[in-house]
């Protein structure tokens, strides 16, 4: 009988747990669902129809308006975001891997000191650096150029930290030794042997840095005045501030927001396992 009670109890708690999780899932998905619905509506229906129900399906017209507004500036912003994030994360991953590999595999004086400086860097928020960087860059004249956003973005202390842990775990000393005995130099050993073993880890490092740059707002806002250099985040922020004055701009902000998050969400779902590797090593800290 006690067994039966236990089973009933577990059925009750099962239902309660599922109900709670569904409520939370609704909370997380509701804004995205709202955005999808709103992006398909004509501007006039935004205020006059219920926000969670579809009305006229105007998605393609909205997309047309979005990409043709101000001589196609939105496409330019999207391209800029891709340049900053893809190129920045690619360069950043490579230099993080080189450094993390050296910290894991070479023995030299001051190694632990350098590593603690990098760990300190993990705790320095990038927003705290943006204003001093602006002051510094204004003195050197690279404010308001691609480089002003790109250069600071390639530095990721967290990437070096991950690279060191991953190298220690995934690159056995014996393999490096045998490559060296075959006469390969350190760089050849790194590029032909270690990089292959590290590929999954490098994807993880790349993803973290990509999202960091893609989501960055404060740095470009501080650095850039020229609209043609904006990433999507800054561009949509500017538009959002003008919706009261420019007609139909609100619909473009909504459609633009949707266009900017869909590719990243797809990449996220496809590459899920790489996130978990990274977050699991983050928690070792």
């Amino acid at each position: 009988m006690s067994n039966q009670t236990a089973m009933r109890e577990s059925r009750v708690s099962r239902t309660a747990v599922m109900a709670l999780m569904f409520l939370l899932a609704i909370y997380f998905l509701l804004p995205i669902y709202f955005l999808i619905v709103a992006a398909t509506k004509p501007q006039g229906d935004l205020a006059s129809t219920f926000g969670l129900a579809f009305s006229h399906f105007d998605l393609f017209k909205n997309l047309g308006t979005l990409f043709s507004r101000s001589d196609g500036i939105f496409g330019r912003w999207a391209l800029n975001s891709v340049i900053y994030a893809v190129l920045g994360a690619a360069v950043g991953t490579l230099i993080s891997a080189l450094c993390g590999y050296a910290l894991a595999k070479f023995k030299f004086r001051g190694r632990e000191f350098l590593f603690s400086v990098i760990l300190g860097g993990v705790l320095v928020p990038t927003t705290a650096l943006a204003l001093p960087l602006f002051l510094l860059f204004s003195a050197t004249g690279i404010v308001n150029t691609y480089l002003a956003v790109f250069l600071p973005s390639i530095v990721s202390p967290f990437g070096v930290y991950l690279a060191r842990i991953f190298t220690a775990a995934a690159v056995p000393e014996e393999i490096l030794e045998s490559a060296r005995l075959d006469g390969a130099g350190e760089f050849r050993t790194f590029f032909s042997v270690a990089l292959k073993l590290l590929t999954p880890s490098l994807v993880t490092i790349f993803l973290f840095q990509f999202v960091g740059i893609w989501n960055n707002f404060f740095l470009p806002m501080v650095m850039l005045q020229k609209e043609s250099l904006f990433p999507i985040t800054l561009g949509l922020y500017e538009w959002n501030g003008q919706t009261a004055r420019v007609s139909l701009l609100q619909e473009s902000v909504i459609t633009g927001a949707l266009v900017s998050i869909v590719p990243v969400i797809i990449v996220f779902i496809l590459l899920q396992r790489f996130w978990r590797t990274g977050l699991a090593s983050g928690s070792i800290k």
Binding site: I32, G51, V211, W214, N215, A257, W275
Partner: peptide, 19 residues
Amino acid sequence: AAFMPYAVPGVIAAIMWSF
């Protein structure tokens, strides 16, 4: 579902919620 918002930049999230 819970992790998806991490893919959304803070600015875009704030714009979505402001609607």
